[in-house]
C-alpha cells in the first residue's frame, strides 16, 4: 500500500510517498538517492546501513520506512557542513587511518555519532560496546576505535591526553556500565 509520510531528514523537513514494505534503507538509497548509507548483509548483521533515528542508532535494513513518520533521521550525508568542512568524527577517521575501502565507514561513523552525542568522553570499552554491531571487512578495528576516541576528545572540547578523560567520573560510570564489553570486537 502507498502512503505519504513526513519526517525530518538531516535537519530538513521532507514528505514523500512510500510503500508499506519499503525499508528505511530502500527509501534512502533507491528513492531519495542518498547512497552514503550502505547495504551489506541486509539482515542486521553488519551495521553498514546504520543511521540515527531520534538519537538512536538502528539498522535501516530492518527498519520500515513507514515507521519514520514524525521522526528525526540523521544519515552520513548530514554530517559535513555545507561549506565543506567535515564533522569531527569524519575528520578523525581521515586523520587516524580509520578508513580503508570505506564501505563500513558511514555505518561506523553513525554508530560513533549516536554514542558521542550522548557521551563524548566514552572510553574504549564503551566505544567497543557501541560499535560491536559494525563489521569492517578490511579489519582495521584498532584505527577505527582510535578514530572514535580521538573524535570524542575533540567533541568534549578536551584537547588533553586520554588520561585526563579516564579520570573523569562520567567516564568511570560508563566504564563499569560496559565492563563486559571487552568481549566484543577483535
Amino acid at each position: 500500500m502507498t502512503k505519504t509520510i513526513s519526517f525530518i531528514l538531516n535537519g530538513d523537513e521532507i514528505s514523500c510517498d512510500i510503500q508499506d514494505h519499503w525499508t528505511l534503507l530502500h527509501l534512502l538509497r533507491e528513492e531519495l538517492g542518498l547512497i552514503g548509507t550502505k547495504e551489506g548483509c541486509g539482515n542486521g548483521e553488519c551495521g553498514a546501513c546504520t543511521v540515527i533515528v531520534d538519537q538512536l542508532a538502528i539498522n535501516s535494513c530492518l527498519f520500515l520506512a513507514a515507521d519514520v513518520q514524525g521522526k528525526q533521521i540523521q544519515t552520513i550525508e548530514g554530517l559535513a557542513v555545507h561549506t565543506g568542512s567535515l564533522h569531527p568524527i569524519q575528520q578523525s577517521f581521515v586523520d587516524n587511518g580509520g578508513i580503508q575501502c570505506g564501505f563500513c565507514t558511514p555505518g561506523m561513523i553513525m554508530s560513533a555519532k549516536a554514542l558521542l552525542d550522548k557521551n563524548a568522553r566514552a572510553d574504549k570499552e564503551a566505544i567497543k560496546h557501541a560499535l560491536a554491531g559494525n563489521i569492517c571487512r578490511c579489519t582495521g578495528y584498532v584505527q577505527i576505535l582510535d578514530s572514535v576516541e580521538a573524535a570524542g576528545r575533540q567533541m568534549a572540547g578536551n584537547q588533553g591526553k586520554g588520561a585526563a578523560a579516564a579520570k573523569d567520573p562520567g567516564t568511570i560510570t560508563q566504564q563499569s556500565m560496559n565492563k563486559k564489553a571487552g568481549e566484543v570486537i577483535t
Partner: peptide, 15 residues
Amino acid sequence: YDAVSNIGSLQVRNM
C-alpha cells in the same frame, strides 16, 4: 542487565 546488554548489537537492541 547481564542478559540484555549482549543481545545482538546496540542497533538490534535499540529496535
